[in-house]
């Protein structure tokens, strides 16, 4: 009987781990490219664009991720209610609200949040490339787009790897925050099983999972750093 319960617990936690991994990889998939235009916007010579991007970065980095998760998940519903109170009913928003689910809300909130941090890392990397690299590219006839993608970006990647490693490790742990909007990821499952079994084991297993996951992340980044160490 007891044994059965533990098997069930392990199975549930495995499912939770898969959800955590999905959140992790999907967030990276969206945040890594999304951060590039944000970094560009922040560095733009257009003051309006640079200023509004900066305000966006300040808000995203200046408020709790947990709060952002709540806003993204509950926001559309609250908006529909607010519209109704104002005497409006717009089909599109009703549709959006009925379609709205916990999981995509979690991915969107995390992707926006992480793209803000990534963008600042990219910006630091891009601004650290010496002016001489741009000048050499220009006199050789490279266009600004070629210069960015062939000359600047590859060097930026090398420079930002350590800082990105830090953020990605944090992301593994931050996936646990989405339990606030009821996504059944690993920590949420562990908490449920812990109260059900009156056992510390689920929490311990969850801890081991996060630890192993981050061990993998550290190894991957160490490998990447080594791979990029053929020049300096």
């Amino acid at each position: 009987m007891d044994f059965d319960k533990y098997i069930k617990m392990l199975k549930a936690m495995l499912d939770g781990s898969v959800v955590s991994l999905e959140i992790f990889f999907l967030t990276l998939l969206f945040a890594i490219p999304l951060a590039l235009p944000i970094a560009m916007g922040r560095m733009s010579k257009n003051k309006l664009l640079a200023g509004s991007t900066n305000v966006f970065l300040l808000i995203i980095r200046g408020t709790p991720l947990m709060l952002q998760l709540l806003v993204v998940y509950f926001g559309p519903g609250l908006f529909v209610i607010w519209l109704k109170n104002m005497g409006y009913e717009i089909a599109f928003f009703n549709w959006l609200n009925s379609w709205w689910k916990r999981f995509p809300a979690a991915i969107i909130a995390l992707s926006i949040n992480y793209s803000a941090y990534f963008a600042e890392i990219y910006r630091g990397g891009i601004e650290s490339i010496p002016k001489g690299q741009y000048e050499a590219a220009k006199v050789l006839g490279f266009t600004p787009v070629q210069t960015f993608f062939k000359i600047v970006l590859p060097q930026v990647v090398k420079r930002i790897v350590p800082a990105m490693g830090n953020e990605v490790i944090t992301l593994v742990k931050d996936t646990a925050l989405v339990s606030i909007i009821g996504v059944a990821e690993l920590l949420m499952v562990a908490k449920e099983r812990q109260s059900e079994l009156f056992s510390f084991t689920p929490l311990f297993i969850a801890g081991v999972f996060y630890f192993i996951m981050n061990w993998g992340v550290s190894l991957a980044f160490a490998k990447l750093e080594k791979k990029l160490s053929y020049y300096h």
């Binding site: 001489g132 000048e135 050499a136 006199v139 006839g141 060097q155």
Partner: peptide, 17 residues
């Protein structure tokens, strides 16, 4: 016109990667 001249810099500015 930029391609008609080549410039050699004081500190080389080679592409390190």
């Amino acid at each position: 016109i930029v391609l008609k001249s080549g410039l050699v810099f004081q500190n080389f500015n080679l592409f390190p990667h």
